[in-house]
């Protein structure tokens, strides 16, 4: 589309309230994690020594397509989300390409990267536990 704005921010009410689990739509699922001692699929109990229980549930769930984002995590996301979708007009012109280029920019928070999206969720479940 020619008329895309240089930067597009979703209206705040359109920030997703659920995460999407792509494994739910895969016919052939990713192979299970194996316990190195036995060579059999690793149990939730074994993983819970390392990760919070809620995160273990998410880790082992190949079937649930949507997970509600906890209210506290949604609130935190509002500090720096939505992140902008940028139309790279300057880059397109500099390259002289007929391609239309967009980028999703995750660097607008203090940590400078997308890693915060999962860090806050993992910290939330740790605190809850």
């Amino acid at each position: 589309m020619k008329g895309s704005p240089y930067k597009y921010y979703l209206p705040e009410q359109d920030i997703p309230t659920q995460w999407y689990n792509v494994r739910a739509d895969m016919k052939t699922k990713p192979a299970p994690l194996l316990d190195p001692a036995t060579g059999t699929p690793v149990s939730a109990a074994a993983l819970e020594k390392v990760f919070c229980a809620k995160l273990v549930e998410q880790e082992l769930d190949n079937d649930t397509p949507w997970f509600a984002i906890p209210r506290e995590v949604q609130d935190f996301y509002r500090m720096f989300r939505p992140s902008p979708l940028v139309r790279a007009y300057f880059l397109e012109n500099a390259l002289g390409t007929p391609a239309h280029i967009y980028y999703k920019f995750e660097g607008n928070n203090t940590s400078g990267s997308h890693k915060l999206n999962s860090a806050i969720a993992q910290a939330y479940y740790a605190k809850e536990q």
Binding site: M1, L10, Y20
Partner: peptide, 23 residues
């Protein structure tokens, strides 16, 4: 997989924004 799940916020926002732009 838990990290991919949380990071899906990136793709979901992108998907919604592109739909709103008609792209």
């Amino acid at each position: 997989s838990q990290v991919l799940l949380h990071q899906s916020i990136i793709g979901l926002e992108t998907q919604t924004a592109l739909r709103q732009l008609g792209v």
